[in-house]
Design a protein around this nucleic acid. Structure first.
Lengths: 246, 246
DNA sequence: GATCCCAATTGATCTGGGTCAAGGATAGAG
DNA sequence: CTCTATCCTTGACCCAGATCAATTGGGATC
């Protein structure tokens, strides 16, 4: 429960401007936000914040990947969210963190102290609108994940996760929709298991099965090639509208 | 996919004023909202809206209970939310419904057509703030449910559901914290199963087991007495802070 | 290139919850 | 008071995924 160390970094431009809270801010508002923003970096494996601990900032991920997890006393853990670049963490108007936030890779975060941020938010209505939209997106994602957790088989779960990672990866690197998708898994087998409500052994077995069946190709343990995205979506049990709009 | 019939009802006072979007509105703003609000009623079993269909209103539940569900092509369904009185449905700024909304009991909803509501929202900043807060609460609830779905046993799942229903029931009827809680289950065994990612047989068996073990008492099929709330929380695997703050 | 270490794979076995099937309890209709 | 429909319970059996237990592999360090 000790608060993690972090490093301050010189401010510069950051993705938050383009993708997250400030999407509709004008120059003055951006300046106001710039004035109170600062950067933090965490190393892979570091815990950014423990569930229940006071959290005096909000912010978004600039680079790297972090996870939101919940844990029961006996150690069972469930990942409840994946933070990719441009994702926002922290709840304005509430003190305690709701989840454990863990850096999966080295990460850089663009942060705002909570108090000043709330003040800016109070006089800048479209920030609340933007946060509302982002939160609704997260809620939709969480609910879609409830279907995965509650009703899908292990194979379908793995395919669903791969589909989500592939889509988000594609939207970040903004290469148009292509037939084959190639990316590095940002998660260990154990982290995948925690996301999917499975054990790491089952994850490993199903990854091998998908590879054997030609749904995916693996170079090494993490590098994945998906020759046919439609096939993958089908394995995931989604209506394969191929709709890349998430 | 046909749009359901509904009945317009005379306007009057409704809980939305006190609990949901208008919590911080002044008299003028309330009047503005009253001017565009109207009521709809649905009978038990009726589908309020199908996932994907256009949804030209937002609103909150005044009385009765409805569910949000997602369905796969082969019929597997997962409930992703429970709408109790004062809960809000619908996404300002988006056309299609994301989920099936089904009336579990007869319900009355207080609705606003989407366009006018968005206009009021645009010039009434604290409505967006309030919606943001409500959405964040829902997101927390959804994520808590991910832990239930992904990592809890059937018995723990049932206990978790009973605990949630008991708490919400208590907060609605606002009787202070008492030792024993008594309420009617608003869901069939099948609906419980869809919420918990189980089959109805397993729900039934676990309900019987909890009854046999004295964790709950059952009069008839739906009427539940919980003699010891702490015991129930313990069965649910929650840290039993007994914190009634949800 | 040898060694170490941790992530990942694979195998053998077990079990919680699913599936299939056969009653039982209520409530409303006539 | 019986009929019928719906919801619920209970039993017998089975299987997907968990658990326990070795190995394997590949990247970093020397």
């Amino acid at each position: 429960m000790n608060s993690p160390t972090f490093t301050h970094v010189k401010c510069g431009d950051c993705p938050i401007r383009h993708r997250a809270v400030c999407a509709r801010c004008n120059a003055d508002e951006l300046e106001e936000l710039d004035a109170i923003k600062y950067y933090r970096t965490y190393e892979a494996g570091q815990t950014v914040i423990w569930a229940g601990d006071p959290m005096n900032f909000v912010g978004s991920v600039v680079s790297g990947i972090a996870t939101l997890t919940q844990t029961m006393e006996d150690g069972r853990t469930q990942m409840v969210g994946l933070l990719l670049p441009s994702d926002f963490v922290g709840r304005p108007g509430r003190d305690g963190a709701a989840y454990n936030v863990v850096a999966t890779s080295d990460i850089v975060m663009c942060c705002f102290r909570k108090k000043p941020f709330e003040e800016v938010m109070a006089r800048t209505p479209h920030i609340a609108h933007r946060l509302l939209e982002m939160t609704l997106d997260e809620l939709d994602a969480a609910r879609e994940w409830m279907l995965v957790l509650g009703r899908k088989t292990a194979r379908e779960k793995i395919a669903s996760l791969l589909a989500i990672i592939a889509r988000r990866d594609a939207s970040l690197s903004q290469g148009g929709p292509q037939a084959a998708m190639i990316f590095d898994l940002p998660l260990t087998r154990e982290a995948m298991a925690d996301y999917l409500g499975l054990t790491l052994e089952t994850v490993s077995r199903q990854m091998s099965a998908l590879k054997r069946d030609g749904v995916i190709q693996l170079q090494g343990k993490r590098h994945v090639t998906i020759p046919d995205m439609v096939r993958l979506m089908d394995e995931a049990g989604d209506d394969s509208d191929g709709g890349m709009l998430m």
